[in-house]
Amino acid sequence: MTPMEIIVELGQALLLIIISPLMYGIVSKFKALMQRRVGSSIFQPYRDLRKLFSRNEVTSRDCSWLFRGIPYVCMASMIILALVVPFFFTGVLAPFGDLITVVYIFTLYRFSMVLGGLEGGSTFGGMGSSREMMMSVLIEPALLLSIATIAVMSGAGTDMDSISEAIVKMGVAALSPALVLAAASFLITLLAENARIPFDNPTTHLELTMVHEAMILEYSGRGLAMMELSSMMRLTIFMAMMGSLFLPWGIAYDLEPASLLLSLAISLVKMLFMAFVLALAESILCKTRLFKTPNLLTVSFMLSLLAMISLYIL
C-alpha cells in the first residue's frame, strides 16, 4: 500500500464521516422544498450536534454503566464501517473485514442500541427495542442475501475492495436481473434500517410511530449527540454502499488525480440523487401501521432471494 493510497482511503473515510450530517440536512431540505416550505438550512444538523455536544447530560438513576458506554460503541462501530466501505475509491483503508463483517457490525450497532432502549426502565425504550428487533429479523436476511448476490455476481468474493472494480469491469453485462433485484431489495433495507418512512418517522415523537426515537429517548446532551451522529453516519454509509457496490459506475479504481476527482464528483452526485429519492419517497408515502411493515420487508426479502436464485438459474 503506497502512502498516496493510504491518504486517499483515509480521506474518503473522513469525508464520509464529515458529510453525514450534511446528507441528513440535504434530505430534510429536499423534503421541505417538495412540501413548498423553505425549510431549515442544510447545515442545521451540524448546529444541532454542536449544541448537543456542549450541553450537560441528564441520565436516569436507573441506568447502569452500560447506558453510558453505548453511545461510544455505536459511534466506534460506525467509524469502523466508514473505514471499510468504499466511497469514491475502490480501495479501503482497513482490509480487516469483508461484506459479512459489515453486516455483523451493523448487528453490533443494533444490539447495543436495543440494550440502551431497555435501560432506564421506561415504557418507551422497551417498546422501541421490541419493534426494532421485529423489523430486523426480516431486514437481516434480506441484507445478507443482497450482499451475497453482488459478492457472487461480481466473482470477486466478499472482499470490500474488489467488488466494485469487478462490477465496473463487467460493463453492460453487470446490468443483470440479479443486480437490479438486489439493488431494489437493498433500497428497501436502507429505508427500514435507517428508520425512514414508511417504516418509521424520524421526525416525530409519537408513541404509535416510534421505533428508533423511542430507543434513544433517554439519552441527552453528549450521549444523544453521539447517538444522533452515529445514526446519521449509518444513513450515509448505507447510501455509500448503495452507490459504490450496487451502482458502482464512475468509481475510481486507480490513483490518477483526474479520475479520483471525477469519481468524487460522480459519487457526490449519486449521493444527492439518493437523497432526492429518499425525500421523494418520504413525501409521497406515509408511515404504515407497524404490523403492516412486515409485508413490505417480506417483499425486500423475496426480492433479494429472487436476485440470488436468478443468479444461479439464469
Partner: peptide, 24 residues
Amino acid sequence: AMMGVCGMVVATSYARLYGFIFLG
C-alpha cells in the same frame, strides 16, 4: 436466509435475556 433469520432471532432472544436480567 436461514442464517440471517436465526441470527437475528437469537440476537433478539439474548437482548431480551440480558436486558430483562441486567437492565431496567
